[in-house]
Structure formats: C-alpha cells, structure tokens
Amino acid sequence: MFKLTINGSVREVEAEPDTPLLWVIREQVGLTGTKYGCGIAQCGACTVHIDGQAVRSCSLPVSSVSAEQKIVTIEGLSPDRSHPVQKAWAALDVPQCGFCQSGMIMASAALLAQNPKPSEQEIRQEITNICRCGTYNRVLAGIKLAAEGGEAGRG
C-alpha cells in the first residue's frame, strides 16, 4: 500500500513497489492523460510534475515517491485549461494526434515555472520530448507565446 498526493488529493494504492509511477497513475488511480510511450524515459509522454519538477514517470518506481511529495498530472495542471501553456497551445492549434502533448505541456509548464523567459536555445535544450507527428515548431512558438503572456488575447 502506498500513499500518493496527486492533484491535491491523497490516494492510497495497492501496487508492487517496483511498479512505475506512470502505471500506478494510469491503472490504479485511473488518470489516463499521462501516456506510455517508451518505458525508458526517452520520449517524455509520461511527464508529470513532482514538487514542481518535470519527471518521466515511466522510470520512477512508486516506492520512491513519498506521500508528502506533490504529484501533478496533466489533469491537475489547471481546472479549466487555463494554464498559460494550455492557452497558448489552444491559440496555436499545437497538437496533431495529441498523444505526446500531455508530456509536452507538462515539460513546457515546468520549464516556464523555473525559467519564465527562456531563450529559444534554452527551449530547444530543455524540451526533449518526442513528437512523431511533428509539432515541434508550434511547440516552440507555444512556449514563447506562453512566456510572453500573449496567449490571452489570441485564445
């Protein structure tokens, strides 16, 4: 039995200690917005925030997360898609298939939380998530737009 704090709620889950946090979030907690893409922390589709840091949850055993740590998933990023990154994404029609976008958005939100005005070079270095549809240039534009705070007038 593990206690996790996810999106502000404390959840008790039954899982083997080595179960990746990703699968506990998806299968035991039932939040499926966080995606499985590779299982080896390569693609970033599983990105969540733990105490504000972007973490690839597919490679993190549930036993390594304490009840005190605050986990935020895409479902908890904002109550109504009002996070600046979500608003910028809507303004620019960023997603194509969208499967990677939960991770893209969570990685981008964590970047902006730590570095509110990242340079293009910093964005390119920090956002290493994989998108196979090819939304990279709109992701880049979306992060810049969110950083400018200019998304409100365009949504």
């Binding site: 998806r26 299968e27 039932g30 939040l31 499926t32 917005g33 966080t34 995606k35 499985y36 998933t73 895409i74 479902e75 990023l77 904002s78 898609r81 979500q86 994404w89 809507a90 029609d93 960023v94 997603p95 969208g98 499967f99 976008q101 939960s102 958005i105």
Partner: peptide, 27 residues
C-alpha cells in the same frame, strides 16, 4: 479555421485506444 479536436488534447481528457476502460476489463 481552428481544429475541432484540440481542446481535449490539452488536459488529458482525449481518450486514445490505450486509455480505454470497460467494466470488468482485464489487460
């Protein structure tokens, strides 16, 4: 025009095949 299918892809609510859950389902 904007895509019709963008918003559910921004908050995790879009259901992909992998996300499907049915009553009594096994994996």
């Amino acid at each position: 025009v904007k895509r019709l299918d963008t918003l559910p892809k921004l908050d995790g609510s879009q259901v992909y095949g992998m996300d499907l859950t049915l009553d009594g389902m096994l994996n």
